[in-house]
């Protein structure tokens, strides 16, 4: 655990917390991108170039933009007077704590079960490509199919209804 890790971890967690706690919705979205960037840097810190850059490209370049557009196109950026906490916040808290504890348990277990890697595995983009189109081609194709159907669905939703002038 290098000091860089701690800096990045603090950055990521601060971004995440700011995304939850800030009042202005657009500020929240921007804070979320900080968290995304921190995650990407964590990946890069682990020498996972492909995942790190893909994280930036997809999450900062596309998802954050999508979030921001969704905020702008739906309603104002101001927080409603009644507050943003839903009435069932306690249930949400329980679910979140449950998910967190399961994940933490799994991580801690796996650290004991898996053998410690002797050397840092050097995974090139080429290896990832071969793995994606070789061993994991079926999941890839399923994801592609899902995305295609989602795109078609979006087009259908956005299409003009028949019989009405454009």
């Amino acid at each position: 655990m290098s000091p860089i890790f701690y800096v990045l971890a603090v950055l990521t967690v601060a971004g995440g917390l700011a995304a939850v706690l800030l009042k202005n919705t657009v500020h929240c979205a921007l804070a979320l991108t900080v968290a995304f960037a921190g995650l990407a840097l964590l990946f890069l810190n682990l020498d996972a170039q492909f995942v790190g850059f893909a994280q930036i490209l997809i999450y900062i370049g596309a998802v954050a933009i999508l979030v921001v557009f969704a905020i702008l196109l739906t309603r104002g950026t101001e927080t409603p007077q009644a507050g943003v906490f839903s009435r069932s916040w306690f249930v949400g808290l329980v679910i979140a704590a449950g998910v967190f504890s399961v994940l933490g348990w799994a991580v801690l277990q796996s650290a004991r079960v898996l053998p410690q890697p002797s050397a840092i595995p050097s995974v090139t983009v080429h290896d990832i490509g071969v793995a994606l189109l070789g061993r994991y081609v079926l999941p890839l194709e399923i994801v592609a199919l899902l995305l295609t159907s989602a795109t078609i669905g979006a087009v259908i939703v956005a299409m003009h209804e028949k019989g009405r002038p454009q």
Partner: peptide
């Protein structure tokens, strides 16, 4: 000289949009 240099370039240009 990154192994995924092209990806790096486009991830950076995507970040300019924000």
């Amino acid at each position: 000289n990154l192994d995924a240099g092209l990806l790096f370039f486009f991830s950076m240009s995507a970040a300019t949009e924000l």
